[in-house]
Design a protein around this nucleic acid. Structure first.
Length: 477
RNA sequence: CGGGGUGUAGCGCAGCUGGAAGCGCACCGCGUUUGGGACGCGGGGGUCGGCGGUUCAAGUCCGCCCACCCCGACCA
C-alpha cells in the first residue's frame, strides 16, 4: 500500500518502475540474490498473459508438456555456440543426497539440449513430424544485474520447441510464432511492437536466425519482448535428431524455439504506466472493474450493498472486484486502485442509490477528469465499450509515442545525438565490426532489422558502405 | 567482476564526544469519521547484518566477513 507520492516517470524512471511494482503488489524482492516473488496480483496478470498466449499456441497446433529442471552438463557442451553463450550464467548442482555427483547437473537456462535429446529418441520417420511442443516453466540464468520482472535470476516463461522435416517448414514456424507474439502484444496488451530479425551478434546462442518483437518503453529505451529462433539443423546435428524420409533416406530435422517471459509484464508497466502508477490493458487486467462502495453507517452500507450486488450481476461477463475493506476512506481506495492500474472504477454511494446512478472513472484518464456519472441500467454495455476504448486508446498512445521518438538521421553525427533519446531507423551494412563500434561509441545497439523494409538501398549510417537493409538502433534493457 | 552506497522494529530513518535503543509510517484495540490519500486515545513489536577485537562499558571505535541497492561490461 502506498503512503507517499511516486517518484515521477520523468525525474527517475527506474525508481518509478521499482516503486510501481512494489506498491501495486505485483512482486517483491525475495531473500535470494536476484530473485523475486510474484505476488498474487502480479501472478494473476501473468496467468492472463499465459491464457492469451496458450490459446494462440493451441490454435496453431501446439501442445504443452513438461521437461526436467536439471540438465546433464554434457548436454550443453554438445552445441558449441550454445555452451559458449550460456556457460557464464549457469547454476550448477554438484551435490545430491549428500554425495558428490559423478556429472554436475545444471539448472536449465533454457531447454534446447534436453529437448534435442528427447526428440532424437522420438523421431524416426517423416510421419513423426512435425513435433510442436510448448513448455510453461521457469529457468535460471545467473545474471550480473537484475531488475524486478525484467531480468531476474529465475524467471517464468514459456519455451516452444518444434522439429520439422524441411528448412522451409522450420522457417515458416519461426515466423508464425513471431506473428503470434506480435498479435498477442498488440491485441491483448496494447503494446505496439516492431517485428524484426536480430543481428548476428544479438542472436540466440546456437541459432541460425533469431527474430524479435521490440517495444519502446516510456523512457524511450527498447525492450526485447519476445523471441523466435530458427535453429537450422544445428541442434538436430548435435543431438542426432534424424528421420527417414519418403525415399527411405536418413535426414536431419530442422528445429525452432521461441520464448516469451514475465519480462513482458515489465513491458506492460513501462509502456502504459503513468505518474499515478500502473495502467493495465483491459484484456489482461486481473480486475477489469473495481467497485468502491461509499457509506457512512450500517444503514447506508446495506442500501449501497444491495445496489452493488445488482450492478455486479449485470457485469458478470467482466472481472469485477468490490473493495469492502473497512477503515479506509474512499479517497484512499481511489488512489490505491489507480496505483494498481485497474482500467475502470465504479463508485457507488448513497447519492447514487437515490438517483439510480454510479460514478464511472477510467484509469487512462487519471484523477477527477476521467470520472462521470452514469445511469445504472447503461452499465453493462457502457463497461464493455469503455474497456474496448481504453485498449484502443492505450495502443494508440503508445504507437504515437514510438512514432514520435523514432527518427531517421542524415549522418552519423546526428545519429549519435538522436540515439541517446529514442530509436533511430537507418541504413546499416550488417557487419559485426561496424555494429560493435557503434555500441562502443553510443552505448546503443541494433535492436532489430525490421521485417518490413522500404526497399531500395543506401549507405551505412556509420561506415558508409553500401547497405540494403535498414535497422532500428536504440539503448535497450 | 570493477566503482559508489547502505545495513538500527514490517517500511523509511535519527541516534553527537562510547554511558538505560528512539521517531514517523504501517500493524492491533476502542471511539469519532468516510463522494479524492481521516483523526483522537491506548497498545504490541528490536540477536542494532555477522564474527572478532579495544574498553569498566560498544548501535557508536578498530579489523575481517556477509547481504542488498545504484552506476558500468553479459542477457529474455
Amino acid at each position: 500500500m502506498s503512503e507517499e507520492r511516486l517518484p515521477s516517470r520523468s525525474e527517475n524512471f527506474s525508481e518509478w518502475y521499482n516503486q510501481v511494482v512494489l506498491r501495486a503488489e505485483l512482486a517483491d524482492y525475495a531473500p535470494v540474490r536476484g530473485c523475486m516473488v510474484a505476488r498474487p496480483y502480479g501472478w494473476a496478470l501473468w496467468e492472463n498473459v499465459q491464457a492469451a498466449l496458450d490459446r494462440r499456441f493451441k490454435a496453431t497446433g501446439h501442445v504443452n508438456a513438461a521437461f526436467p529442471l536439471f540438465i546433464p552438463m554434457s548436454f550443453l557442451e554438445k552445441e558449441k555456440e550454445h555452451v559458449e553463450g550460456f556457460s557464464p550464467e549457469l547454476a550448477v548442482v554438484t551435490i545430491g543426497g549428500g554425495e558428490q555427483l559423478e556429472e554436475p547437473l545444471i539448472i536449465r537456462p533454457t531447454s534446447e539440449t534436453i529437448i534435442g535429446h528427447m526428440y532424437a529418441k522420438w523421431v524416426k520417420s517423416y510421419r513423426d513430424l512435425p513435433i510442436l511442443i510448448n513448455l510453461w516453466n521457469s529457468v535460471v540464468r545467473w545474471e550480473m544485474r537484475t531488475k524486478l520482472f525484467l531480468r531476474t535470476t529465475e524467471f517464468y516463461w514459456q519455451e516452444g520447441h518444434t522439429a520439422h522435416a524441411t528448412p522451409e517448414e522450420a522457417q515458416n514456424e519461426t515466423i508464425q510464432m513471431l506473428n503470434v507474439y506480435a498479435d498477442f502484444a498488440e491485441a491483448e496488451a496494447g503494446v505496439p511492437v516492431v517485428k524484426g530479425r536480430k543481428s548476428d551478434s544479438e542472436k540466440f546462442a546456437g541459432a541460425l536466425r533469431s527474430y524479435t518483437i521490440e517495444a519502446m518503453m516510456g523512457d524511450k529505451r527498447a525492450l526485447q519482448a519476445g523471441t523466435s529462433h530458427n535453429l537450422g539443423d544445428n541442434f538436430a546435428r548435435a543431438f542426432g535428431i534424424r528421420y527417414l524420409d519418403r525415399e527411405n533416406t536418413l535426414q536431419y530435422c530442422w528445429t525452432t524455439s521461441w520464448g516469451l517471459s514475465w519480462r513482458f509484464i515489465g513491458a506492460i508497466i513501462m509502456v502504459h504506466g503513468d505518474d499515478k502508477g500502473l495502467v493495465l490493458p483491459p484484456r489482461l487486467a486481473p480486475y477489469q472493474v473495481v467497485i468502491v462502495p461509499i457509506y457512512k453507517n450500517d444503514d447506508e452500507r446495506a442500501k449501497v450493498q444491495e445496489v452493488v450486488e445488482r450492478v455486479r450481476s449485470g457485469l458478470s461477463e467482466f472481472r469485477v472486484h468490490t473493495d469492502w475493506r473497512d477503515g479506509l476512506t474512499p479517497g484512499f481506495k481511489f488512489n490505491d486502485w489507480e496505483m494498481r492500474g485497474v482500467p475502470l472504477r465504479l463508485e457507488i454511494g448513497p447519492r447514487d442509490v437515490a438517483a439510480g446512478t454510479a460514478a464511472l472513472a477510467r484509469r487512462d484518464v487519471p484523477g477527477r477528469e476521467g470520472k462521470r456519472t452514469v445511469q445504472l441500467d447503461r452499465l453493462p454495455t457502457l463497461v464493455g465499450e469503455t474497456l474496448k476504448d481504453i485498449h484502443r486508446s492505450l495502443f494508440e498512445q503508445a504507437s504515437e509515442f514510438r512514432r514520435a521518438n523514432t527518427r531517421q538521421p542524415h549522418d552519423y553525427e546526428e545519429f549519435k545525438q538522436l540515439v541517446q533519446d529514442g530509436w533511430v531507423d537507418a541504413w546499416w551494412c550488417g557487419e559485426a565490426a561496424c555494429e560493435s563500434q557503434i555500441k562502443d561509441e553510443t552505448k546503443s545497439t541494433t535492436r532489430c532489422i525490421p521485417l518490413e523494409q522500404p526497399g531500395g538501398s543506401g549507405m551505412c549510417i556509420h561506415c558508409g558502405k553500401p547497405a540494403t537493409e535498414r535497422a532500428i538502433f536504440g539503448r535497450s534493457y
